[in-house]
Simulated assay, not measured.
Amino acid sequence: MAMRDEGDFEALFAHEFPRVARVVHHVVGDRARAEEITQDAFVELLRHWRTVVAYDRPDLWLRRVAIRKAQRERRRGWRGRELEALAAPPEVVGPPPTPAPEVLEAVRRLAPGQRAVVVLFYLEDRPMTEIAEILGIRESTGWSQLHTARKHLAQALRSEVSDA
Rank of each mutant, 00 (worst) to 15 (best):
R33C: 01
A149D: 14
A54E: 15
V43M: 10
A66S: 02
A11F: 09
P95H: 04
Q145R: 14
L86Q: 10
E124K: 02
A32T: 10
L135H: 00
G7A: 14
E124D: 10
L60T: 10
A87I: 00
Q71H: 11
R81N: 00
T129L: 07
R47A: 09
G77A: 09
P89S: 12
W78S: 00
V103H: 00
Y122I: 00
A116K: 13
R81D: 01
I131G: 03
E10K: 14
P18Q: 12
L45G: 08
H15K: 08
V20L: 07
L46A: 12
E44L: 07
V24L: 09
V65F: 09
G80A: 03
T141F: 04
P90W: 08
E130K: 06
A2L: 06
L83K: 06
E44Y: 07
H15I: 02
S162V: 15
L12E: 07
K69H: 11
T129K: 07
W49N: 02
R108M: 10
A111V: 15
V53L: 15
T51M: 14
L120W: 03
A54V: 12
E10I: 13
P127V: 00
V28Q: 11
M3D: 05
L157Q: 02
Q114W: 09
R63H: 06
F9Y: 15
G94T: 11
A164N: 14
A66H: 04
R50F: 00
P96V: 03
A116S: 14
A116N: 13
Q155F: 01
P90L: 09
L46N: 05
D40M: 11
P97G: 04
A88F: 09
E16T: 02
H147A: 14
V118T: 09
D163G: 13
V52S: 01
R138Q: 03
F42V: 01
F17W: 02
G136L: 10
V117N: 08
E91M: 03
